[in-house]
C-alpha cells in the first residue's frame, strides 16, 4: 500500500515536471525567439510594396469578393485537415487590424510566428518561409501596409478541431519543425541564384503549397517542391523540381519566368486555382526578379513527389 502510494506520488511529480518542461519549452519566446529590430533607417516604401506583391499578402488577407488588393480586411477561409482558418484583418485599422502594432510586433509575427499577445500563430500563416526576410525588409513591408486603407471589422475566429485548437501546442510543433533565422546568401552561388533562392523560399513561400505535408501539417523536407495534394483538398499541386516527367525538367528559364508573368505554360495552358492569383502577384515583380526565381528553380535537383492518383477529379 505504502509502495503503491509512493509510486503514485512519483508519477504525479514526474508528470508535473514533464508538463512544466513542455510549458517552458513551448513558450513562444523560448521556442521561437524573434530577431531584435533595434534602430532602423527610414523605411523604403517601394521595397515594402515589392515585398507585399512577392509575399502574396493580398492573396489571403484581401477582403474576398472585391477587386481592391490593398483592402486587407481578411476573412478568407482556408480549409485544412485540422479545421478552417480565417485570414485575419491586417489593415492598419487600430481596433480590428494591426494599426496599433509596432515594427517589433510585426517582425515577431512574420519571423517567429508570435502574435501581439505573445501567443503562437498557426503555421497556416507561412512564417516558416517569411522568417527568411531580414528585419529591415520586414520594417519596409510594415511601413507600406500602414499606408493602406484601414478596414473595419474583424475576421471570424479559426474553427479548428480538438486538439489543434489549443494554441500552446503550436509550440511543440515549432520545437519539431520550425527553424528561425533570416536569409544568408551562399557566396559560392551567383547573385541571381541567391536572389531567386530568397524570393522562392522567403516571401514567395512557394514550397508551402508545392510540397506535401506530414500528418502534423509540416512540409516533408525530403520532397520539398515535389508537389502533392492541394492542402485545401481540391486537386493536385504540381512538382516544381527538375523532375523530367512531372516537374520543370523540360522547361527553360524563360518559360518559367513567362509563367510567373502571364500565367501561361509552355503549351499555352493557363494556370488555374490559386496559382492564377499567385501570378497576379509575381506579375508585379521585375523581369530580373522573375528570371532569378527561374534561375533558382532550374537548380533544384529532380525529386519525385508522392504518386498522383490517376483519373477521377485529378
Amino acid at each position: 500500500m505504502l509502495l503503491l502510494r509512493r509510486l503514485l506520488v512519483t508519477l504525479v511529480v514526474l508528470a508535473a515536471i514533464g508538463l512544466g518542461g513542455f510549458w517552458l519549452l513551448t513558450d513562444p519566446r523560448i521556442v521561437s525567439p524573434a530577431p531584435e529590430v533595434g534602430a532602423l533607417p527610414a523605411a523604403d516604401l517601394d521595397n515594402g510594396k515589392l515585398l507585399f506583391a512577392a509575399g502574396g499578402c493580398a492573396s489571403c488577407h484581401a477582403t474576398p469578393g472585391q477587386e481592391d488588393r490593398t483592402k486587407l480586411g481578411g476573412g478568407l477561409a482556408l480549409t485544412s485537415a485540422f479545421g478552417t482558418f480565417h485570414a485575419p484583418n491586417i489593415s492598419p485599422h487600430t481596433r480590428d487590424g494591426i494599426g496599433n502594432w509596432g515594427v517589433q510586433d510585426f517582425v515577431d509575427a512574420m519571423a517567429a510566428g508570435v502574435g501581439r499577445q505573445g501567443e503562437h500563430l498557426y503555421p497556416a500563416f507561412p512564417y516558416t518561409s517569411y522568417r527568411l526576410i531580414p528585419p529591415k525588409a520586414l520594417a519596409d513591408l510594415f511601413a507600406y501596409i500602414r499606408t493602406l486603407p484601414p478596414i473595419e471589422g474583424k475576421a471570424a475566429a479559426h474553427e479548428l478541431r480538438f486538439p489543434f485548437n489549443i494554441r500552446r501546442l503550436v509550440g511543440g510543433w515549432k520545437l519539431l519543425f520550425f527553424q528561425g533565422g533570416s536569409f544568408q546568401p551562399d557566396p559560392t552561388k551567383s547573385e541571381a541564384w541567391n536572389r531567386g533562392f530568397y524570393l522562392v523560399n522567403g516571401p514567395g513561400h512557394c514550397a508551402e503549397c508545392h510540397s506535401n505535408r506530414n500528418a502534423l501539417g509540416a512540409i516533408v523536407q525530403a520532397t520539398r517542391f515535389a508537389g502533392g495534394p492541394d492542402p485545401e483538398g481540391k486537386g493536385w499541386v504540381p512538382n516544381i523540381t527538375q523532375d523530367e516527367a512531372n516537374g520543370l525538367g523540360k522547361w527553360s528559364k524563360d518559360e518559367i519566368a513567362e509563367l510567373l508573368k502571364t500565367g501561361f505554360t509552355p503549351s499555352f495552358d493557363s494556370v488555374g486555382g490559386s496559382m492564377a492569383d499567385v501570378v497576379r502577384n509575381t506579375a508585379q515583380l521585375s523581369d530580373a526578379d522573375r528570371a532569378a526565381m527561374a534561375e533558382y528553380l532550374k537548380s533544384l535537383p529532380a525529386v519525385q513527389g508522392p504518386a498522383r492518383p490517376r483519373g477521377g477529379g485529378g
Binding site: 492541394d230 481540391k234 486537386g235 493536385w236 499541386v237 504540381p238 502571364t262 500565367g263 501561361f264 493557363s270 494556370v271 488555374g272 486555382g273 490559386s274 496559382m275 492564377a276 492569383d277 501570378v279 497576379r280 477529379g313 485529378g314
Partner: peptide, 16 residues
Amino acid sequence: ATKNCGTCHEVYRIKK
C-alpha cells in the same frame, strides 16, 4: 482577351 484565361481558371478550375 487572354486576361480571361486567368480570371476564369482561378475560380472555375482546380490546380493540377
